[in-house]
Structures are given as structure tokens and as C-alpha cells.
Design a protein around this nucleic acid. Sequence first.
DNA 1: CTGAAAGCGCTTACAG
DNA 2: CTGAAAGCGCTTACAG
Lengths: 339, 339
Amino acid sequence: MARSKTLKTVTRKDIAAAAGVSETIVSYVINGNRYVREDKRARVQQAIKDLKYRPNAMARALKGKRSHHILFIADDITGEYFGRLIGEIDRLAYKEDYFITLCSDRPDEDFVNRIYSRFFDGIIIGSATFPLANIQRLIDSGVAVVLLEIRDYQSITGSFGLINTGLLKGIGQAVDALYERGRRHLLFIDRVSDSGQWSGVDDWRLGGFLDRCNALGIDSSIVSGAYSEEELLEAVLARLASNERVDGIIGRNDLCALIGMQGCKHVGLIVPQEVSVIGFDDTRICRYCSPTLSSVAISQKRIAYAVIEMMMSLIGAEKGKQKPLKTYLDTALVIRESV
Amino acid sequence: MARSKTLKTVTRKDIAAAAGVSETIVSYVINGNRYVREDKRARVQQAIKDLKYRPNAMARALKGKRSHHILFIADDITGEYFGRLIGEIDRLAYKEDYFITLCSDRPDEDFVNRIYSRFFDGIIIGSATFPLANIQRLIDSGVAVVLLEIRDYQSITGSFGLINTGLLKGIGQAVDALYERGRRHLLFIDRVSDSGQWSGVDDWRLGGFLDRCNALGIDSSIVSGAYSEEELLEAVLARLASNERVDGIIGRNDLCALIGMQGCKHVGLIVPQEVSVIGFDDTRICRYCSPTLSSVAISQKRIAYAVIEMMMSLIGAEKGKQKPLKTYLDTALVIRESV
DNA sequence: CTGAAAGCGCTTACAG
DNA sequence: CTGAAAGCGCTTACAG
């Protein structure tokens, strides 16, 4: 490191010198994997404290120890939903002595190679667009992988963790709630993406929406493909102005639902009298908009807990001895004025 | 790494064998710091491609090369403001071949030791509560440090980057806007923090608010210390119900302003006729609440750009040869229905 | 122009 | 019980 020029980095050698023991002893004290005479151990620990020594994580990782870094891949890290999730994950990971590195999913070929340079003990995939082949490759390489099940991962094999966040159940709850209120013409509003990463039918929110509408025998339509909020609003307006009726709207997230509500206002449709609207994620915005927005709530705290617990179990496990892990979480539909 | 058991990691040695050159040559091709005969270079590059080789970042970092990791320390990573900022920073950093590791500021002593293990080429500090002594220690150690100037950093010396995000100017704009509308009794609503990290007077938003009110000779008061939104609302209600008048509210962020608006509704104060409200950060919520919320806008894109540009300059610079860098950014008050 | 060698800071099998 | 030694995967000064 360039900085080693200005900083007399304190290394194991310094501790050994200060404590009057061999460097080997220092290592064994740190790793606790061999008996060390009590007085030596005490002197080493004192020296570590005095000199504020921390073993070089790079060197340890090179020797096969853990890097204590976990990568989180998301396709949109800017939303409040991911913000809260990452905040929780960070908090729990820190307790386990882990750092969370964040990364938006990238379409380019090089991306998986870059994350593949053995820097990370574990990888959390919260992106619905990260190629399945890459996921498989990562799992095969032996790195601990936890997947947030927001799409179909049936084809993935090997040892990994799977968190079912209840999306399918949640989208079902939303469709059912609209159905119960007599809504028969539902519109799904997909997310805004400036990098063109919209939902496919293997996305559980969109796919689940279509399936559920089908099962109930009601109309379903989709607005997708917007690069900006403005574009999305226009697309929604175009859809609402068309001949085909809309009496229920589900947003892929709360913002999408909000834009749906805005669209209704523009064309003179009254929420909730004429159109019912439900969002997803139950972010804070739901309580502050007008009418207040109903939304499907997923507990980020519980997801975060499940993610970290599973990750620690995978990282700690004997390689190859590990069975796939799976956790199911629950969702709740929060009803507010908009339905 | 434990995974090396299951994965035949491709190393420099494999490339050397595949290309029929010495390992040294492989390194020189990768680093481009010595002439290598054209045909050898070509064979090495082909082998790298074929075997999908990526040099082990740990080993390179150990030898003094960069780790290509930057740490971002924030005190609240869950808000939309930080979400957008981090999203932008991540995007720009990725172009420079850097990863962003995220971390909430921690009060415990061990925190700075942990980040101090030479894992990061650079550290971005976006927390208003990270101890100054620790910042100084990091800078002295030679690591590249960029500070988001959300409080007073006068006492910090050495070589680092400073991004003035225009907070002082922004809070001034907000106070002035209220003053111009005849408001003389202003209330500042501080953030919610479940870890007890509220603003001090060295925080530029709060400090700037107090200073500006003082300069204009008008009343100022503060609501702070809430652990949850509910608690904050209660504190606001208590304040509004007291004998001392409030006719203008500024939130430390948009959510705080929104809670202020909610408080007004509860006690029957009409926004904006009786009380004007201004938020901070101009998040999306401002356009979807009712009345729509005026807010001080800071461009996260510009901040992100400045942060990464400065960081790359610091990381690339000769150690010790670097003068402090400083960038000033601008803010804009976006007026909506709430004033 | 190019290779063998030293060494970054560690861990741990190996040999006392 | 404990130390000297090998080696993780690299970079680069050193010596041809």
C-alpha cells in the first residue's frame, strides 16, 4: 500500500518485539488455535492493545482465512426499500465482524469476473437480473451465496441459501384484496430503470400478478419500460386514456403505485372510489401521501436477520457438506385509504 | 480461502504455463510497466482471456498495490438521500474499477481500529458524528480521505479532500424564505435516530439554522432526541401545544418536515396559511405528500462526481505531496405548496 | 530484453 | 510446549 510510506504500520513483528516472543506465538494468540503459556499470552495481548494492532486482513485472507467482506448485489440500491434492508444487514453483519460491500448489478460481461477475484467470503444476490449462469458459477466456485428469492431459482444447484421473502404471497394478497372489492381490470405498474432493467415474467412480483389474475379470471395489463418517472407517468396516462378499463392498480413498489395515483388524478379517476391502488414495500411515503397508500409490507429486519444467519452458516460450513438452506418469510397487506 | 478446496483457482502460474512464459512476464503484461515482446504479450493476454484470469486482489494489495475498495461511512444509510448518493457513487466508482463498502458509523472504540486494517484505499466520511480524532488518525496514516462537509472540519490538518455540499447556504436559503414570508418563530426538527446520534451545534444544518435566525433576530427552537417517528411526532406536538408560537418549520430532512406537517394537522394549524414548512434533500416524497413539500435540493449526482473525482486524485497522488482539496457545491430551494 | 529471487504480512504443518 | 520454515499470489528491484 502506498500509505505504508507515511505510516509505520504496526505488524505482527512489532507485537512480537514488544512482547518479547516469537512472531509465531503472536499468531497463535490471535487465532487461539494452540496453547500458549499464560504469561506470554498476556504480554502479547497487552502489546496488541498498546500498539492498537490489527492483523492485516489482506495477508490473512491470502493465507486462506476469511476476508470478512460480503458483497451485496442489487439492481437498484437507491430505493428506500433497499436502503432499509441494507441498513439492517449492515448492522447485523457488523456484529459478526463483517463488512458489506454494495454493488449495483451490471450488465457487462466483466462484472462477474471482477467479483470473482476471491475478495468476498459471501455474496448476497438481491438482483432479479443477475444472470443465472453467473450465479451458478459463483456457487460452484465455493463461495457462500445467499439468494433473495424474487424470481425463480429452480434451476440453480449446489450449496447455497435461499430466502423466500414472500413476494408471491404478497402479490397474491394484493390481487385478492382488489378482487374482493369488485375490481376486475387490474394494471401492474413496473419500475423505473435508467439502465433498462425492467421486470420479466420470471420476476415474482410481475409473474405472480399475471398468474393470480389469470387464476381469478380477471383482466390484467402492464405498464413497463420507463427510463424516468416522467416517462412512467406518461405511459400510465396513455394506458388510462385507452379504451380498456382500469379499476385496480398495483405498483411494483410504492413509488410506482404513487405514480399510478397521480395518473388517476390527471385523467379524473377518483381513488379509491373508482380505482383502488396498492403499492409494494410499505415505505414511509405511504403514510404521507394523499390518499394514504395501501401497501404490501415485507419486514426488512426479518429478511436481514435471515440473510445474515444463513450467510454465517454457509461461511462456517465444511465445504461440500452443505445442503441448500431455505427460509420462508411472511408478508402483510397494510390497508390504507387507497383501496 | 476455504473455497480454494473446491475451486482450482486460476493463478498467475496457470497463465504462465498456458502462455509458455515465466510468471514474471505475466505480471509485467498485467501491470504494463515493462516492455514485453509482442508475441509473448499476445499469448499471455490470450491465456488470461481463455482462463478468465483475474489477479488476486488480496495478493496485489499485500504487495503495495491498491485494494480497489473504498469505504463509505455514513450515520444513516437507510434514507433516500444516502441511497441516491451511494447509488451514484457506486456507479462512478465502478467505472474506475472500485468497489464501495458501506458502513454505518459506530460509536464503539473498536470501529476505527477495524477500518484501519489497510483494507481500503480510500475512505469517504459522510457521518456528522465520526470523531474528529479518528478522522485525523486516518488522514495521518496516509489513506485517502474525503470528507462531506456537513459540519465544521477546521481543525483537521494534512492531506484530504473536502466537499462542501452547500448545506450552510441551503439552510440559509430556507430560513430566508421563511423570513421573507413574515415568519418570525422558527422550529428546527432534528432527525430520528435509534442509536442516539442526533445533531449537535457543529452540525451545519442545525448550527446554520441557529446562526441565521440569530442574524435575522428571530425566534428559533429545536425538537431533537427522538428514537422513533412516533416519538418525534409526540415531541413536535408537545412543542406546538406550548405557549411559544411556531409559524415556520424546517426539517433536518424531508421526513422530519413531513412529521412537522403532520403535527400541525393534529393541532389544527393550517399549512401553509398559518405555518410554512420546508424540508431538506428534496426526496421524491416531497411531490407526493399533501400539501406538497418545499425542500432544499442538493444534487447527489454532483456530490458523487466530486467525491469520486477527488478520491481518485488523492489515491493517485504522491504521498505527502498533496495539498488539501476543496470543492463547493450549490443548493437550490425548491418551492412547493408548503410555504 | 528477461528470469530468479526477495519479500508484502500473515497461518500452520513440521520438526524439535 | 514452541520456533524456524514454507508458502498464500502477487510486484518489482536486482542481476544477468
